[in-house]
Design a protein around this nucleic acid. Structure first.
Length: 509
RNA sequence: GGAGCGUUGGUCAAGGGGUUAAGACACCUCCCUUUCACGGAGGAAUCACGGGUUCGAUUCCCGUACGCUCUACCA
């Protein structure tokens, strides 16, 4: 039997969690649940210069909102704690030193300026970005070029240094990616990556390998942008003697900009007017707020659904999936290799479908929150469920419930008089006046009774129904939208209906 | 520049040696509805290019083009 499946999502706490990140979480989660495995959240905060206050909490909250809760995390703890790399700092150095002893890595004393000079000095037309690798390392200041005594002296002086991996020359490194199949690289083409930084923190390269090993990760999902550094990681697994424990890799396709080409970024959302982050993100540095899917009115189920099928399908025509179905059906063989452009139209379609799927009961709480957010505190009102049933077909986003449903509870703030005016006349004014009178004495306040009365009155005044429905609607609703107007009257009640007719009449006279 | 990865309608995509090349979003037309939607019917639109292999290639192979990613003491 295979080892117990363990996967991890390992973000850097540097800002809002975007679509691609959530999809990576989702695929991790689905894979773990499908195999009765464990889903770990590990925070990769080794770059102190990029640390952003609140970002980690934000990530945790996003996962909670999405329902993708990790089994082990900084918050929940777990058998391999700590789950924050900054708190694991001391664990990495020994492995880097081990590599130096083995001759697979070396100390490098070059300052940032010296590195910059090197890049300028060796830059040629054919090689615009020279690498710190086998062709150049002998010309730099490191324990390979300097001689033992000198190295000892520099170390003794406490000169800052980094530890770099010594990439072998001309070795073919091959591995099997679960999505792409066999992928190979020539080791000469990758530079001697820094493993341990001058501040003692590991770089991503060292940290992932060490932590994935220590945390017994069996399957590693990450974005395609990591593919080029895979050879470094494979070498590290080999040099550290753990190659048999190396997780299986899956490099996920990228989520691309809807227009043009390239990775989707927060900027694209701002530019094109759609969210990129899961939830609102407020940058603590400049207090800039970026709107998220949650606040815009997306249901987490819809958000998950749309992300799941962006780059994956189950081979059938089905597009709407619950999380349970996703866990059951998800399969890496159906993950696309190419990147997918994000379509906000399609995203909204998913949300609309999910809203339509729900019964009023499931939407009630969220709709209430939308109303509250607009300053309308709903009392325990059994009408809310009826309203939801009546209008949910025309709500794409949760926030649409305000426009589509608020007039059931509060008279419209503005009346679109301009749409009535052109065809308005005294006959119609008289009709509504009589209608209001008749409604006052109507005992049976049901849609059927109201409709009958409406029709009778129209016939008496010899005005076509169609001529009267629009004005009636606008008086009750404020504009040209909403469900059947008689249903609205039935629901808002006699008193309110008559009041709104009177108000409308006044505005039109 | 180099390397890696990718390429089926505008977008997401199924499929895979022989098909009228699914379906969805968006778009257009019509029906339903004298609001806006929902719903229903229909339409337009795709295998990047060139060589092979083959009786036959969108599918397999090789090139080319194009795109993306990486090429930091960032992840």
């Amino acid at each position: 039997m295979d080892k117990k499946v363990r996967v991890r999502f390992a973000p850097s706490p540097t800002g809002g969690l975007h679509l691609g990140g959530v999809r990576t979480v989702l695929y991790n989660y689905l894979f773990a649940k499908q195999h009765n495995g464990t889903f770990v959240l590990r925070i990769e905060d080794t770059d102190q210069t990029r640390f952003v206050e609140g970002a980690e909490e934000y990530i945790q909250e996003c996962l909670t909102w999405c329902g993708l809760v990790p089994d082990e995390s900084p918050l929940h703890g777990g058998p391999y704690a700590p789950y924050r790399q900054s708190e694991r700092k001391d664990m990495y150095r020994q492995y880097a030193e081990q590599l130096v002893k083995q001759g697979n890595a070396y100390y490098a004393f070059d300052t940032p300026q010296e590195l910059e000079e090197m890049r300028v000095k060796f830059k040629t037309e054919e090689n615009p970005s020279p690498q710190y690798g086998h062709t150049i390392r002998e010309k730099m200041r490191n324990s390979l070029s300097l001689g033992q005594a000198e190295v000892g002296r520099l170390l003794g002086e406490g000169l800052p240094y980094v530890i770099r991996i010594k990439m072998p020359e001309n070795e073919t490194l091959t591995f099997t990616d679960m999505i792409r199949g066999e992928v190979s690289f020539n080791s000469s083409l990758t530079d001697d990556k820094v493993l341990l930084k001058a501040d003692g923190m590991p770089t991503y390269h060292l940290a992932v390998v060490v932590d994935d090993y220590l945390m017994k990760i069996t399957h590693a999902f990450r974005g395609e942008e990591w593919l080029p550094s895979a050879p470094v990681h494979i070498l590290l697994w080999k040099y550290l003697g753990w190659i048999n424990e190396m997780p299986q890799w899956a490099h996920l396709p990228l989520i691309l900009k809807p227009d043009g080409h390239g990775k989707l970024s927060k900027r694209d959302g701002d530019r094109l007017g759609f969210p990129v982050f899961a939830m609102n993100w407020k940058d603590p540095k400049n207090a800039e707020l970026t709107t998220g899917f949650r606040e815009l009115g997306f249901l987490p189920e819809a958000f998950i659904n749309l992300l799941a099928v962006l780059g994956w399908n189950d081979g059938t025509e089905q597009e709407l999936f619950t999380i349970e179905e996703l866990i059951e059906r998800f399969s890496l063989d159906h993950v696309h290799k190419g990147g997918a452009k994000f379509s906000y139209d399609k995203a909204k379609w998913f949300n609309h479908e999910w809203i339509k799927r729900y019964k009023a009961e499931g939407l009630r709480q969220k709709v209430k929150e939308v109303f509250t957010g607009n300053g309308l505190e709903l009392k325990e009102d059994e009408n809310l469920d009826k309203v939801i049933e009546l209008v949910k077909d025309r709500c794409t986003l949760l926030t649409d419930f305000w426009q589509q449903g608020s007039f059931f509870f509060v008279a419209p703030a503005t009346i679109d008089v301009a749409s009535i005016k052109p065809k308005w006349n005294d006959d119609k004014a008289m009709f509504f006046d009589i209608l209001a009178e008749k409604l006052t004495v109507l005992e049976d306040w049901t849609a059927e009774a109201i409709e009958t009365l409406f029709k009778e009155t129209a016939a008496e005044k010899n005005i076509k129904m169609g001529e009267l429905q629009l004005p009636f609607r606008i008086m009750l609703v404020g504009g040209k939208f909403g469900p059947a107007v008689i249903d609205i009257a039935a629901l808002i009640g006699k008193e309110e209906t008559i009041k709104r007719i009177r108000t409308g009449l006044k505005l039109l006279s």
